[in-house]
Design a protein around this nucleic acid. Structure first.
Ligand SMILES: [Zn+2]
Ligand SMILES: [Zn+2]
Ligand SMILES: [Zn+2]
Ligand SMILES: [Zn+2]
Lengths: 383, 383
DNA sequence: CAACTAGGTCACTAGGTCAA
DNA sequence: TTGACCTAGTGACCTAGTTG
């Protein structure tokens, strides 16, 4: 690059230097990884990228936001690294692998760690979808509430035992024996999955697989579940609808649930359309789900849980950002912002759904069986 | 060739250019060494060909395979050079007559470095031999164990203070006052050096002069010393025996230690005969010693020490190779392999010696003074 | 002389080191 | 851990020599 050279020859611009570090605003040393940076930030970026270390900002996550403060807080490594990525420092410019020493330290590099985490998430997600597709179809009126489900052992392995549900996906015009209202909240049928229930169950089992979740107090676990499981299962449904190239929200059996004609459809489909709009990829979806789950802002959490979730959120956020940069280079930061936007949609959807359900179901409660008011679905809607 | 010209004048084909570098696919600059290449690849090829340094791909040897990846990994010099040759760049087009300057200047830096290192090693080795020849003869029963010797300051300068040992080398028939067993491990005599001890001491002082050694943890220093000092002192003795044109293993005072009649002689002399067979030169010996010392495969080393020793080993290995190539041209690589073979002999000798010593000395321990069981020699034999 | 392509130069940026 | 400083390339640009 000749940028430095040009500036040096331009007598008008010689002083003061127009050429400051894009991260910390100190005088720049040159272009490093495609961005004008100082020596410190250059070395910092390489070190951070190469070393695996979990980072967290202990202030407000704005230590390097130069709109908010005149001087960056150089000591905050989390914010510094985030800023490096945001101004577009390109990890691909680091010559991993091509040099002997780096090949060795690659084992511990962030890249490797990302791979590990993504492998794990991928594996788990396959299991989840297998679970949804399985013939396992427990009676929702009997299986108990959230607390019972939290306590019992993982049900995911049952999909192996039961095998796939025969005949799925159904033809679009498939007609079920039971009526829609029955299907919805009235009675249990062993021949048809109550998707609202089963998707919630799937997400509960999903959360239960994470060590960080199991380490929370039972009270925090309950709070988190209540706040996150609906959105989580909606995100899952939405992604798989998209993946299976349906044009509207579908369940694994091929049915439209809720139906387009139902009033809540548009709200349910919000996330589906958001995913479609950004054209989310699989790995992005996996990380987004984790970011959504790690929500430290949920009310009434203990401070321990807040801390752990905050840590989790920055862990997966950074991973998503690094992933975007790796796969897209310069447009990585934009992509990251677009993807994070899906989280906001999920949160909004959750609020709308709650209001909607309360409005729609409250008047019906008298005609629904008393089993419903003790069910998981009731709990998730009205808690 | 007018190809470049044609393209420039052809308005239709101006964009996108059909004239890309055959190696890296960036826009080409012209034909260089018979192939359309960019400026970078042109210069790269010349530099590489003139330097001819050993290269290795640390990935899959496909960094420039544009069928497999859209962008080449420009930093992989091995694959880049391979691709240069593959697309037919012709080294004969390089004009060696006028290239002397570049070759020289590029070579000079490397050569200069080698010279520096060898000068240093030579100087140090002279000091060592002076030390062995000096009248300094500490009491091995009192001087302490390895840890004490590691901690104390360098003793090499004492050879100046004490001057050379008077009367050395002795006539082959010289008769000592003390008996052989006494000499071996029983008592200390100020008039006669216990060579096994003094050679170990010399090698310990040798190792202590290296900054890289001093930067290791004490624990690593001890492990390394225990593993390397015996072989190091054997190599030293063997080389100087050869240099002084003795026909069997001799110490600086001219005595045969161990005696040919002793059972361990043949094992001790292994390295001596190996050196004789290859006809090692001084500088080769110096580098071999360093390569032997830098052994990252020693068990229980910290990963830091492993890393540093690995680096040291490749540093001195490359130096030896370059030295062989410089002094012998075409038969350089063969010579290098022969020389490296000495290291294997050293390692083998070390194993044999340990077994032998344990067998020979264990039954004698009861008749040896308790000082012996606390001495450096005991430590090096039985650790 | 125009159109090239050798070689040479040097500002520039990777990675690496080490004192603070 | 940080960052000033170092080494080892890298390639844009230049010059000089060759060819038709
Ligand atoms: Zn900076
Ligand atoms: Zn911060
Ligand atoms: Zn090229
Ligand atoms: Zn390669």
């Amino acid at each position: 690059m000749d940028f430095l050279h040009q500036v040096a020859n331009n007598s008008i611009l010689k002083f003061p230097s127009p050429f400051n570090c894009k991260i910390c605003n100190r005088p720049a040393h040159g272009h490093h990884c495609d961005v004008a940076t100082c020596k410190g930030c250059k070395t910092f970026f390489r070190r951070m990228y190469l070393l695996k270390s979990e980072l967290r900002c202990y202030i407000n996550s704005d230590c390097f936001d130069l709109d908010k403060r005149t001087e960056p807080l150089l000591r905050c490594r989390a914010c510094r690294f985030k800023k490096c990525l945001l101004v577009g420092m390109n990890p691909n410019a680091l010559n991993f692998r091509t040099t002997k020493n780096l090949t060795q330290s690659l084992k511990n590099s962030k890249e490797e760690k990302i791979k590990d985490v993504i492998n794990e998430l991928t594996y788990l997600d396959c299991k989840l979808e297998q679970f949804r597709l399985s013939a396992y179809n427990p009676n929702w009126t009997e299986i108990g509430g959230l607390e019972d489900l939290l306590r019992c052992s993982s049900k995911l392995s049952l999909s192996n035992k039961f095998g796939p549900f025969p005949g799925w996906p159904y033809h679009p015009n498939h007609i079920f024996a039971s009526s829609n209202l029955d299907y919805n909240f009235k009675t249990y049928s062993p021949h048809r999955k109550q998707w609202r229930f089963f998707n919630l169950l799937t997400s509960i089992e999903f959360l239960k697989t994470f060590p960080f979740f199991l380490k929370l107090d039972t009270k925090d676990q309950l709070i988190l579940m209540r706040h996150v499981v609906v959105g989580c299962s909606n995100l899952h449904s939405a992604y798989y609808t998209l993946k299976n190239k349906y044009e509207d929200l579908r369940q694994p059996d091929g049915t439209q649930r809720p139906k387009k004609s139902e009033p809540q459809y548009s709200t349910f489909a919000m996330v589906f359309y958001a995913l479609m709009r950004v054209g989310v990829h699989y790995i992005e979806y996996l990380l987004l789900k984790m970011i959504f789950i790690c929500n430290p802002a949920i009310p009434n959490l203990s401070s321990n849980a807040q801390y752990k979730l905050e840590k989790g959120r920055s862990f997966y956020s950074e991973m998503l950002l690094v992933y975007c940069l790796q796969s897209l280079n310069s447009s990585g930061p934009t992509r990251y912002v677009d993807l994070i936007g899906v989280i906001a949609t999920l949160e909004k959807q959750q609020k709308l759904l709650k209001d909607l359900h309360v409005c729609l179901l409250a008047p019906m409660l008298s005609i629904l069986p008393k089993e419903f008011s003790r069910s998981l679905m009731y709990e998730m809607i009205f808690s």
